[in-house]
Design a protein around this nucleic acid. Structure first.
Lengths: 196, 196, 196, 196
DNA sequence: ATTTAATCGAGACGGTACGTCGAGTCTTGTC
DNA sequence: GACAAGACTCGACGTACCGTCTCGATTAAAT
């Protein structure tokens, strides 16, 4: 894995190899030992990297996790566009629930959101760099439905909160299972508010 | 309940004075310096107490915060009962928002909920010892309305999630302001599903 | 062992039972775990006695050991009086070597002497309460020989130092074995200085 | 031997500065507050060094003292060689007495010897790393005298014990003053055994 | 016969120091 | 100039004993 062409310093530019090793080590440690088990020293040891290399490129361990999270997120959680609002919302919320409860990047998200409760700077970065983009995607089905005339011209931001809020609440607060029935009912309740 | 001056614990003589000093010091430190600023050493120093005294009675700093939180919570967040479902829910959600965003015990709650993302044992204790009681209170307005016939016989648990979920989501995830308009709209949307 | 007539406090006078238990526990702990393994808490636990009971009667752990040592010493190391100086000295030094290297109270003596290097108050007590008496006994064979005219009127204190000094030196400093040959040679060398 | 400014240890860069600061702080603390006043925390604080730095290089406080002692000992207590056995022995024993009772490294030696009574591992190290060398020096005057024919071919080891034993005994056990008269008499008595 | 006071086991208390872990900074020599 | 290695200072961890302090129970002398 660590190839024989290992990069051990060079004149120009940063080692992509070290960067990847760090991100993977951080991800692995989070999965194996939880957030408290992720330490700079631990990452460095597992990645076969010097601590200084981590500090050179990331201000703190949450920044490492944030970057790892960004890599993993890539193409996640884009809602479908079938022209059927109810179906699209049901699919999207079910995907969201799956992401939050059962995926590796979902675990990172939960850890980062937890840490953000203690760390306002992280909270801001998390919102600016991730949530804002995700919320833009969350708005899409509603905006399309309004454009189609399938939905009145409601406050889309509040509507998104009404839809994704209960899912996050279950995941982050109550720990209750987020079943397909729950998300489907949530969509049904939402739509009922706006039907003729 | 707790006796006049000196508490008698196991055999004789746990110091109620030390116990209170610890809980208050922990609360103060959380308010002043945030979760990371709460350390056993810091609590001990501020409370004028030996570290061993803390370790004797609490397994970890989150247990101290949990107990401090319990003390502070006492009579919080019981929904009113005016017989008017809409008014009661509006008041209750507004109180919840106020609690979560602007009160000292609310700050403790956010910190503990954040920490619970890294600590399953804490998550369980938080749910068993606090959330379950709060949810029971959250259910009351709905149960009374159903009993009065003002609401159909819906799934009360899901309904509670739909109402308090978006508020928690804004507080814990997006950090958006939770205005009176937001909670009022939330109640209005909820009631619209069930109106005649 | 701890009888049913256990003494648990009375108006006048101290519990002999507790006193013995403490002294024995201290001795046992020294034998088992060395000087560092002797702690007030450890003695109390092993003796089935409250810490306060120890502090009531002994200022420190070395005082406990000192008292235990006194009890054990009782009739040790009194030189014989056969009228034959050489024989008496040989026997006495051999007994001294045996005491210092192979007996339980000898181990306590070594520990206390070691501790006395760090603790001038202990050093003083050890000298006043034990060494002075032992030295008086050490002088006896020489004083008797002088009275008999078997030895010139030398400085008895220095002579005692010349005789017992090398034995203590081997025990406390070099750790070399103190054989019968060594003590016999020591006596022979001493006598040779004064023969005529 | 030790390089100019910064010592390079394992790989590169053990701080010679930190090492010296630790040894000096330990020495100073022993002189000022006695053995019990020497603590790792105290050394660290006085040396302006982190506790971890001490633990990185020394297993315990006695190892620090042992190393400090080694540094200080360097050129101490080498007996003179004037060709006059009596004079050389008198000088050497007087120097020994002065070292043991009145010098700083002598105080360290007494403390370490005291501690060695509780700590067999320390006893062994003390003997192997120091006493053996000192005893080799102690033997020199006798060996030279034998070579010159000024002394019969006696057991040098026992003779050394007879000479230095009483001095150590007074210092470590009785606490009596070790005057020039005492050491001179000791030498005189020793020589009397072997005179024509 | 009852009071009363010294002593007991128990153990909580404020402290000091322990030895360990990880943080974040710095220096050194290699590529 | 980035890298691996690792020593450095610092702060907090959780533990062990220290010596002091109640507490309630026990018990024999003094009422």
């Amino acid at each position: 894995m660590t190839s024989d062409t290992a990069h051990r310093g060079n004149r120009h530019g940063r080692s992509e190899q070290a960067r990847r090793a760090v991100l993977e080590a951080a991800d692995d440690l989070l999965a194996e030992k939880g957030f408290a088990g992720v330490t700079i020293e631990g990452i460095a040891a597992r990645a076969g990297v010097a601590k200084q290399t981590i500090y050179r490129w990331w201000p703190s361990k949450v920044d490492v996790l944030l970057e790892a999270f960004t890599e993993d997120m890539a193409e996640h959680l884009t809602p479908p566009d079938t022209g059927d609002l109810a179906a699209d919302l049901r699919t999207h919320l079910a995907n969201l629930a799956e992401f939050l409860t059962a995926s590796d990047p979902g675990a990172v998200f939960r850890a980062l959101t937890g840490q953000a409760q203690h760390d306002p700077a992280l909270a801001t970065r998390l919102r600016d760099e991730h949530l804002s983009h995700q919320r833009a995607r969350d708005r899409l089905p509603l905006e399309r439905a309004i454009a189609r005339g399938d939905l009145p011209d409601l406050d889309v931001d509040e509507a998104v909160d009404h839809l994704v809020g209960p899912v996050h609440y279950r995941v982050l607060v109550t720990g209750t299972e987020v079943s397909r029935a729950f998300t489907d009912n949530l969509v049904a309740a939402f739509l009922k508010q706006h039907e003729r």
